[in-house]
Design a protein around this nucleic acid. Sequence first.
DNA 1: GTTTCATGTAACTTAGTTAGTTACGAGTCT
DNA 2: AGACTCGTAACTAACTAAGTTACATGAAAC
Lengths: 149, 149
Amino acid sequence: MKRNSRLSSTLHILVHMTETQEHALTSEQLATFIHTNPVVVRRTIAGLRDAGIVTSSRGHGGGWQLGRAPEKISLAEISAALGETLLPFSTEPESPGCLVEQAVMAALDDFRVEAERLLAEKLSRITLADLAADFRRRYELIGVTSHAV
Amino acid sequence: MKRNSRLSSTLHILVHMTETQEHALTSEQLATFIHTNPVVVRRTIAGLRDAGIVTSSRGHGGGWQLGRAPEKISLAEISAALGETLLPFSTEPESPGCLVEQAVMAALDDFRVEAERLLAEKLSRITLADLAADFRRRYELIGVTSHAV
DNA sequence: GTTTCATGTAACTTAGTTAGTTACGAGTCT
DNA sequence: AGACTCGTAACTAACTAAGTTACATGAAAC
């Protein structure tokens, strides 16, 4: 797993889980999908479990499954559950009391709040079911999944 | 200068330059505003010079000045000149050939492109003059700039 | 022309973040 | 009881970005 690809890696995992809803997938299996380590998977999607997006079970036959129908899981929820920030810049003051900084931060903060609302709204319109449907469309066209690499 | 605060730090600097348009400010002076090193300042705003947002001159009385009127400098330009990415996530493939990944990346990329367009549009409506005006408003209310800390 | 001041930039150091790994405890099914 | 799997702490490695040092280049003052 490369840097800054937690969202895409997680979506990758979740689409696989959508395609395999009849049984659980282990961290080990999920890890191979995104070429990483089982522990990294568990750590990464722990937040999704807390958000009810996935469930995990221990022991024989255990593993991970979707917590609810993929139509009811939006990318906005997933991103939030991962603790990802939609915007990269900070608005924490470094010179409290400096009026220049206050003016800058006020403008930036206004922008950030509105931008985040906007992005979240956009992401909330895309569901896991949409991604899975697109995958199936591609699959029917080409006919191979190829996790060979 | 803290991490991930390049945009806010640069804006801080630029507002100071807006308020001091009659003469140039040295990297040394700019560095004290954002509590950092002159070299870091030069490195950070080098891109702004290439974009014509600021000009620099060497030697006695040299330093940095705005390249054009603050009304004509938008935050979108500044952000772009800094080389900042508006969105933090990557859409580079890790398993080329995997159809699941292709579906995920396609959705994410669509979102990213539209989101970036949207954010840039928003940022292009805020100019340096707006920030400077807000600073002056705050200054008239309180009466101190305070770079003491 | 020499001195002084300032940028431009390369090279190195330091600090912080995150993925990756190892290890082991705690449930759960057969 | 034994096999299996998650949960999590602790550590290591890799990467990124800020900070620093050093010095060359250019411009103004004298």
